[in-house]
């Protein structure tokens, strides 16, 4: 097990390096630091000196990957790649364009993102499984047929409409919850109602349809038939045999996203003005703050890879057939 995890960790390094290389080439090769400087200094009478000063202030006045004028190790270390991309490996995210430390920002904004994402995930899982298991129970009837139709219709609606409708209904018409905003602590609970509810409904169609498919795929298998042949009732077949087997793909599909929950949801947080990492990212994109975007890309990949490893571990826990040696 330990050996397996070590090997997975080693395998993660080339992938993260690849991620790094992609972002590096996007941010430093496709558009050069000069482009960035011009963009930030505006169009009006920019001199070469001003550009150089901007680059120096933001640490962009180095060569890309090889510093020919330096000696020894500095030839490689005193470059944009080493200073801006490789440092991410040490979780040193550097500074945003306005000079704030990105690392501090990330730590502060993780909380609100999780406050939305975790209830969303847990309640969602419970609701989606219950609904899809009900549809499976009524398979072949009109309840199932119409249920699937509704699910397909629901997944054909853009998430933005759910948010807008949720804000309008709960916030404006019924005054059940604030339209947007966030508050730390228990008192902030009311701010979470709408985003969590909206997230739940927005994901309902797609998830229910997918889970139902997983259930139906399992229900056609031989072991279900042989469970029935030994006189088990439908409830015992569904709960004891079907659910356990179908949960394997469902759970492992969920586990992979757990680490990325930290990243928050871009549009939910932005619409509801929640000071999480999602709105942080979207603000950075709109302000074209490349340092933040770069940091978030790297963080996202890191968390995703962590999610993959967690998935493997969760397989061992739920599926007796899988061993990691």
């Amino acid at each position: 097990m330990t050996r397996y995890l070590l090997r997975r960790l080693l395998y993660a390094i080339p992938i993260l390096l690849g991620v790094n290389l992609i972002t590096f080439s996007l941010f430093f090769v496709v558009n050069t630091p000069d482009d960035m400087a011009y963009k930030h200094l505006g169009d009006k009478r920019v001199t070469v000196e001003m550009v150089d000063k901007w680059k120096k202030d933001h640490g962009y006045d180095r060569p890309l990957i090889y510093a020919a004028d330096r000696g020894g190790f500095a030839r490689f270390s005193d470059t944009l790649f080493a200073q801006h991309s490789l440092k991410l490996f040490l979780l040193d995210f550097g500074r945003a364009d306005d000079g704030r430390s990105i690392g501090t920002d990330i730590r502060q904004r993780m909380g609100p993102s999780l406050a939305i994402a975790i209830p969303n995930l847990l309640v969602g899982l419970l609701v989606y499984i219950t609904v899809s298991l009900t549809l499976t129970f009524f398979r072949g009837t009109y309840i199932d047929f119409n249920g699937v139709l509704i699910a397909v219709a629901m997944m054909s609606i853009s998430a933005m409409f759910y948010i807008i409708a949720g804000q309008f209904l709960l916030g404006k018409l019924l005054h059940l919850a604030p339209i947007s905003g966030y508050q730390h602590g228990i008192a902030g609970f009311r701010f979470l109602i709408t985003p969590v509810l909206v997230g739940l409904i927005a994901g309902l169609g797609g998830s229910v349809r997918w889970y139902r498919t997983l259930f139906l795929e399992e229900i056609e298998k031989d072991y279900i038939r042989s469970a029935r042949a030994r006189g088990l009732g439908e409830a015992a077949v569904l709960w004891r045999h079907l659910l356990r087997n179908a949960l394997i793909p469902i759970l492992t599909g969920v586990v992979v996203v757990i680490p990325t929950l930290f990243m928050g949801s871009l549009i939910t947080e932005s619409f509801f003005s929640i000071p999480g990492l999602g709105s942080y990212t979207i603000d950075a994109i709109r302000a074209q703050d490349f340092a933040i975007v770069r940091a978030m890309v790297f963080l996202g990949s890191l968390l995703y890879i962590a999610g993959l490893m967690l998935t493997d571990l969760s397989y061992v826990m739920v599926d007796p057939r899988v061993r990691l040696e």
Partner: peptide, 28 residues
Amino acid sequence: SNAAMRSVRGSRIGMVFQEPMTSLDPVM
């Protein structure tokens, strides 16, 4: 009825299937 059949299956008529590989629940 389906419920009455359940009391027959297993306790009065047992059945063995062709594919032993897939006829057992893999996670139990």
